[in-house]
Design a protein around this nucleic acid. Structure first.
Length: 491
RNA sequence: GGCCCCGUCGCCAAGUGGUAAGGCAGAGGUCUGCAAAACCUCCAUCACCCGUUCGAAUCGGGUCGGGGCCUCCA
């Protein structure tokens, strides 16, 4: 099955065919740099990171552009509140954003342009729109005359007249029509400003994306992405600007990710249920957060809660336990090859693992269904665990080869998802040691107790042995006995 | 008021015409001194009603419930 993606414009899944064969031009709206990024940003960027990686995995040459909005009312206001220079403020949060993305294992886009580095392109674009009669200057501001663009609202499928009732004109705006929006804003004294044909000022909210998309990707691109909340007005305005200026289709596919809710409610500052990525990463492993995000289809709402994150953590542990098991078996079995090939009946047991790549591709081809893809991977894990548990074909070369195949395929699809790349041993270790202090424990203390219990068990003093285990269990530590000795993990 | 989305097992979540993936939790079993992990087995007819169809969780209409956008927002 060919790759199909849901296109907001047509409101259906469409087969993906790029503007230019073998290449993908992808533009995703980035952040306005006036605060730390939150879990909603994390979701959007993880989702498009996976989309970009998947296209690469399919062999496309991907040009992924994600902008920074580093000049905007919100930045100016926040800088004023803090008594900071607005440029400094923007720098600080752009750096923080990059750090957060790195923590979440998001690859850097091909280009990460900033609005302030594209002022000339923005001015050119606005001049072009004025020349075409689609924009007009008004007391140092420039507005887009929305009535002049026939396709306006085609993405959000709204009705202009019905919207006007609710529209409002902000003080100081000199619009001819309430639906018009600002392309350029005259600077107030003391505000950051650039010279323009209309006097000193700065770009409006939407024009930068049109300018940067065109500069870095061309007049027509393949995919334009962002959160659902950007459909109106941001993306609608981008279409008006870009298509108004070029007369060409702006983007072939519009992809929008769903919202993040917190405990069933929309995350918002007014509700006080607002989490930054940094806050979450203090408590949770970044890979767990990433896994959680990918466990839901990108267009569905996702509910962020302790319980759901904890479930995700257990799920990821299952994957790493399996990888660890396979690595250990592969290492031990290296030298002892015996027996012949695998039996026909065992062939069936291996099936989910053998079909991993096909199943993965099929799930991802259906509008990047990462939730299904992960479900399929869980099945492959179970198949492998089962084969190992039943000791079928243990030690024979074919068996070993398949274990290794499973392992390399896990890492292969894991690279697309941005998961499973840590050393299982180290990752599982970090899982068990995090949060020990809060429980009033240390690794040394636990190991001392294990030693004591070992002695007790040797003396068949099981009462004492169990008491030690129960004591640790109360603090969330589980002991695991094996022929090689006793290890432990966090519940 | 306008536009739009959703309602699948205790929780999370795939599935959008062919007879319900997966994870977490839970029950029983194998293993174990006892446990844990792993494995095996078990655990839903898809909010409700009425239609279309040989056949519907999937299509249409209605009811109830939840949510979003229309203002900066991923």
């Amino acid at each position: 099955m060919a790759l199909r993606v849901y296109n907001t414009m047509s409101a259906r899944k469409e087969e993906f065919t790029p503007v230019e064969e073998g290449k993908v031009r992808l533009y995703v709206c980035g952040i306005t740099a006036y605060d730390y990024c939150h879990i909603g940003h994390a979701r959007a960027n993880v989702v498009f990171d996976v989309i970009s990686r998947y296209f690469k995995w399919l062999g496309y040459d991907v040009n992924y552009v994600r902008n920074f909005t580093d000049i905007d009312d919100k930045i100016i206001n926040r800088a004023n509140e803090l008594g900071m220079d607005s440029r400094e403020l923007a720098e600080k949060f752009m750096t923080a954003f990059d750090e957060d993305m790195r923590a979440l294992n998001c690859d850097s886009p091909t280009n990460q342009p900033k609005a302030t580095e594209n002022i000339d392109q923005i001015i050119d674009l606005i001049e072009g729109l004025i020349a075409k009669g689609l924009a007009y200057e008004s007391e140092g501001d420039v507005y887009y005359a929305v009535r002049g663009f026939p396709g306006y609202l085609k993405l959000s499928k709204r009705n202009m007249d019905e919207m006007i009732a609710g529209a409002r004109i902000a003080p100081g705006e000199q619009k001819k029509d309430p639906m018009d929006f600002a392309l350029w804003k005259a600077a107030k004294p003391g505000e950051p400003q650039w010279n323009s044909p209309w006097g000193a000022g700065r770009p409006g909210w939407h024009i930068e994306c049109s300018a940067m998309s065109m500069r870095y990707l061309g007049e027509s691109i393949d995919i334009h992405g962002g959160g659902k909340d950007l459909i109106f007005p941001h993306h609608e305005n981008e279409i008006a600007q870009s298509e108004g200026a070029t007369g060409k289709p702006f983007a072939r596919y519009w992809m929008h990710n769903g919202f993040v809710n917190v405990d069933q409610e929309k995350m918002s500052k007014s509700l006080g249920n607002f989490f930054t990525v940094r806050e979450i990463l203090e408590k949770y492993d970044p890979e767990v957060l990433r896994f959680f995000i990918l466990s839901v289809h990108y267009r569905s709402p996702i509910d962020f809660s302790e319980k759901n994150l904890e479930d995700a953590r257990h799920g990821l542990i299952r994957f790493y336990e399996a990888l660890k098991l396979v690595e250990e078996l592969a290492a031990v079995s290296e030298s002892e090859s015996s027996a012949d090939s695998i039996s026909d009946e065992d062939e069936k047991a291996w099936e989910p693992a053998a079909n991993m790549l096909d199943n993965f591709r099929e799930a991802m081809n259906d509008d990047i269904n990462t939730a299904l893809a992960l479900g399929n991977l869980f099945e492959a894990v179970r198949a492998v665990n089962r084969v190992v548990a039943e000791k079928k074909g243990e030690g024979n070369p074919e068996w070993l080869k398949r274990l290794k195949e499973f392992h390399s395929r896990m890492l292969d699809v894991g690279r697309v998802l941005g998961l499973f790349q840590s050393s299982p041993e180290a990752w599982l270790n970090s899982m068990k040691t995090s949060g020990l202090e809060e429980a009033g424990l240390s690794v040394e203390r636990i190991e001392a107790l294990i030693e004591e219990r070992k002695a007790a068990r040797k003396d068949k003093d099981f009462a004492r042995a169990d008491a030690i285990r129960d004591e640790l269990a109360e603090k969330g530590i589980v002991l695991l006995d094996s022929p090689q000795g006793t290890t432990w993990k966090k519940k």
